[in-house]
Design a protein around this nucleic acid. Sequence first.
DNA 1: ATTATTTTTTAGATTAACCTAAAATTTTTA
DNA 2: TAAAAATTTTAGGTTAATCTAAAAAATAAT
Lengths: 218, 218
Amino acid sequence: MNSFTEENYLKAIYKLSERTAGMVSTNAISEEVSTRAASVTDMLKKLAEKGLINYVKYQGVSLTAEGRATAIDIIRKHRLWEVFLVNKLGFGWDEVHDIAEELEHINSGKLIDRLDEFLGFPQLDPHGDPIPTRSGKFRQHDFIKLSKLEAGESGVISGVSDHSSTFLIYLERLSMVLGKRVTLLERNEYDGSVVVEGSGGEKIYLSKEVSGNILVTN
Amino acid sequence: MNSFTEENYLKAIYKLSERTAGMVSTNAISEEVSTRAASVTDMLKKLAEKGLINYVKYQGVSLTAEGRATAIDIIRKHRLWEVFLVNKLGFGWDEVHDIAEELEHINSGKLIDRLDEFLGFPQLDPHGDPIPTRSGKFRQHDFIKLSKLEAGESGVISGVSDHSSTFLIYLERLSMVLGKRVTLLERNEYDGSVVVEGSGGEKIYLSKEVSGNILVTN
DNA sequence: ATTATTTTTTAGATTAACCTAAAATTTTTA
DNA sequence: TAAAAATTTTAGGTTAATCTAAAAAATAAT
């Protein structure tokens, strides 16, 4: 069995290799887990020893099949717990990340399968992220960043790529919630900010960062 | 905040002081947490330093008000999670102890209050143990050991004092489940074993140990 | 293509929680 | 009540996960 800490490293490496595709650097991991690079090096040796990552000194790391499966399993748990917290206990989508961060390390396959069933086998978590199946498969999701829409084009808000509560509370205040249809009216080429229109005709101003963290479909 | 390990020591001390009322010995704790006495001494110093226990060298320990409150809070979490596992996820009463042992350390007051509400503010866990209120109060329970019934007296099975799955699975096989009414037919004075009769007229033989771990009301 | 900078690793320490072996204290027993 | 036995504590070590400071390697810049 892997420790709590080992699991967090695997999750971090998985997350980083999604975005960058290829080798993940020690410094990037260090940043992600908020731990000094020297400590990361120690842990990388240990994870390599256990066969969970491919590690080449000074070159970076990638997950082995086993490491990847482990990481995906943790993500599955995290997202199922988030669904539980929001759908069953009435938490807001901005409140659940930290609690799920603890719950994801609870160690019982049976528990997670029962929870999955109890929740009705949800496909997406409260932030629109796909929940992997028990065998570690992700269903395809065709989300694009809101910031990539053309002027005049519309889309339905289906996900976010920042799960921090500050960001989610801000979206909430703008009533930019999952399921809402918006049309991109204009893009300011100078700073990348955009103006979108909701179905009620209301106009919403979004900075480049914000629109880049909102995912839409259609 | 207290560590996972510190919480387990507090829980152990609480449990032991329930049974013995008074000072708890190092060896008893050592046994309860499956750790050497020397290590227990280290931890006792630390817990005393934090104001959670009263510790007098060579004399034993007792919980302070704060330590007691902390222990009761953990017990509350443990029992609420057990109710969740049994009532919502369909686990058997013999399967939930170990999982709840992990879940009880999840750190969020809001989570546990929401869970309590979601479960309908249960008063007892699946083993018949009372669930303390948010303010740490136990409702009175008037359980007596099945082994203390007089011949001819009857009672309703309402709790157990051993939560191990071996014991619970054994009870299950005898269909000695919560809510069942039984009448004590006879007690063998030689080994303390008893014979009870169920409402269907079936006779069940129970050793002294088993009948001592079954709690009845009425 | 050397030097300068950044990144990564090694070396040596620290803290929490554990251990064994030995010493100190308390309890039991003769 | 003094010796024997049991309990508890101290002393000194280990492991996992972290740290800082310094060395080594890779990358970038002149």
